[in-house]
Structures are given as structure tokens and as C-alpha cells.
């Protein structure tokens, strides 16, 4: 009897653990950021007010609550800088995701169709870049793409171009950086779903006279859809908020919300407004995902 209840308690704990994780590392920080986004800037430590002080008791707390306002959110929509930053981030992340998918799919496909003995090695090669710091890998691209860099020197010495190309400090460099950095996040889920695919389905299609390109579109792609969706989410979401890549590789004209947020936080020291920027960013990302998952769930229910 006793053993039964402990195992049940154990199961309950295991089940609650993800929720506890979300509570501590997502909901709580989010609430703090949200609260700051309703505050006002002031010159003090920390640089916003009101700060909730328990010394004032309940009435003090109520006073603090009354000082909160949605002013910062109104401001976000009064200046087109923020809207443009969001849109431009979504665009850059969207195009990058598409590029990563187009490059990552053949790689994952090739890996999944390679001899079984090679696969662990190939998988290792995909993961290998993670052994070097992300920052150093992005820095390395500066050396490759700069005016006097490896790429230009190579192209000039082979006579392909006469004058050095300006790639660094443009949006092209940002795309290169994002595609390079996020490729493994696309390849891994794609590989996982492609590798699991039953090859006899392809043989059957072949036997029934379906030409290989059609087989690919009718059978392989739909079956790898979960991998495509997972990979796209894994690339798109962090790419929208990317700061390091546009900051190091992008030019002054590269507009991304991560940089706008940085400027609010560090240049203007405006914690409340930068918190509002972060909250809106979170909503932009979370709401479509929730709608998508909801739709998917309904689809599954309908199918079964």
C-alpha cells in the first residue's frame, strides 16, 4: 500500500516538474518583466519606479500598483521605429528560416539515406560546431567576409572579381550568419523524422509506377512534416530575437528588434520601455504558435 502511494507521489512529481520549470523560468521572469514594463523611468538604482516595497504594507503596495500604467505600450505604437523593427525582424527570420530549410533538407535527406555505418559520424559532424563558442564562430565570419577578408582575397586571387565585395556590415552578412548558425537546429529534427521513415513505402510507390520526384513530394515530404515544423520553429523563433549576429555582422541599417531593445536598455537606460518591447515580442511569437498547435490538435482529433 505504502509503496503504491510513493510511486504515485513520484509520478505526480515527475508530472509537475515541467510545470515547476515553466513557472520558475518562464512565468516568474515574465511577470517581473511585465511589471517593469508598466513602470516609469527614474534616475536611481534600479532605474524605474515604483519598486514594490513591502515596508509600506498593504496600502503602500496599493499605491505602487496605482502608479503602473500602459503608457509605454502606447508609446511603442506612436513611433514607427518599433513596428518597423518587429516587421524587419520577422522578415529576416522568415527568409533565413526558408534558406535554412532549403539547405538543411538535402543535408538531412542525404544523411538519412547514407549507409547506416556512416550515420553516427555524419551526425557528429553536424553537432561538431557546437564545440566552439557561438560567439567565436560568428566572429570568424568577420574575418571571412570583411573587405580584406578570406573570401574577397580568394575571389580576387582567382580572378573572379576585380574589386572586393562589400558583404560585411550588410543584411547579406546577417543572412549568412543566421543560416550558418542555425543550420544544425534544422538538420537534426529533419534527420530524425527522415531516418524513421519506412523505406518500403518508397519501394511500393516505385513498384506502382510513381516517378521518383513525385514520390518525394507525395510521400517523403508529408512524412517529414513534423521534422520540418520542429526545425522551422527552432530556427525562426530565436532568429527573430537575434542580437549577436546582426550586431557583429550587420550594418548600421540592419534593423532588428534585438538591437532596438538593446538601444532602449543600454543607450536610453529605459528599462520600462525595453520591457514593453520584450513583452510584445513574446506575444508576437507565442500567440501564433499557440494557434498553430491548437489547429494541429484539432486536425489530429478529426483524423482519429
Amino acid at each position: 500500500m505504502n509503496g503504491f502511494s510513493t510511486s504515485r507521489a513520484g509520478r505526480l512529481i515527475v508530472r509537475l516538474l515541467p510545470y515547476a520549470w515553466l513557472l520558475v523560468f518562464f512565468l516568474l521572469p515574465f511577470l517581473i518583466v511585465f511589471k517593469i514594463s508598466l513602470s516609469q523611468v527614474t534616475l536611481a538604482i534600479p532605474p524605474y519606479m515604483p519598486t514594490f516595497d513591502l515596508v509600506g504594507g498593504i496600502s503602500g503596495l496599493m499605491d505602487s500598483v496605482r502608479q503602473l500604467s500602459f503608457e509605454n505600450y502606447a508609446f511603442l505604437f506612436s513611433d514607427r521605429l518599433y513596428v518597423l523593427s518587429y516587421l524587419s525582424s520577422l522578415q529576416i527570420a522568415g527568409i533565413s528560416t526558408l534558406l535554412v530549410l532549403m539547405i538543411g533538407y538535402p543535408i538531412a535527406y542525404g544523411m538519412a539515406r547514407s549507409p547506416r555505418a556512416w550515420r553516427p559520424t555524419l551526425l557528429m559532424l553536424v553537432i561538431l560546431p557546437f564545440w566552439t563558442s557561438f560567439l567565436i564562430r560568428v566572429y570568424a565570419w568577420i574575418g571571412i567576409l570583411s573587405r580584406e577578408g578570406l573570401l574577397n582575397n580568394f575571389l580576387m586571387s582567382t580572378g573572379i572579381i576585380d574589386a572586393p565585395l562589400t558583404i560585411l556590415s550588410t543584411n547579406i552578412a546577417v543572412y549568412i550568419g543566421i543560416v550558418y548558425s542555425y543550420l544544425p537546429f534544422m538538420v537534426l529534427p529533419l534527420y530524425a523524422s527522415l531516418e524513421r521513415m519506412d523505406e518500403s513505402l518508397l519501394e511500393a510507390a516505385n513498384d506502382l509506377g510513381c516517378p521518383p520526384p513525385k514520390t518525394f513530394w507525395v510521400i517523403t515530404v508529408p512524412l517529414s512534416l513534423p521534422g520540418i515544423v520542429a526545425g522551422c520553429f527552432l530556427v525562426f523563433i530565436p532568429a527573430v530575437g537575434e542580437f549577436v549576429i546582426p550586431d557583429l555582422l550587420g550594418g548600421s541599417q540592419t534593423l532588428m528588434i534585438g538591437r532596438t531593445l538593446w538601444a532602449e536598455f543600454f543607450n536610453n537606460r529605459d528599462w520600462p520601455l525595453s520591457s514593453a518591447v520584450a513583452v510584445i515580442l513574446l506575444l508576437i511569437l507565442v500567440i501564433p504558435i499557440m494557434i498553430f498547435q491548437n489547429m494541429q490538435q484539432r486536425q489530429q482529433e478529426k483524423n482519429s
Binding site: W21, L22, F25, F26, L27, P29, F30, V33, F233, L234, I237, P238, G241, A278, L282, L285, V286, I289
Partner: peptide
């Protein structure tokens, strides 16, 4: 994915 964002926020 969500917790990743949360970490950034934290």
C-alpha cells in the same frame, strides 16, 4: 522553445 525565450528574459 518557450523556456528558451524565458531564459533570455530572465
Amino acid at each position: 522553445m518557450i523556456s528558451r525565450l524565458a531564459l533570455v528574459a530572465a
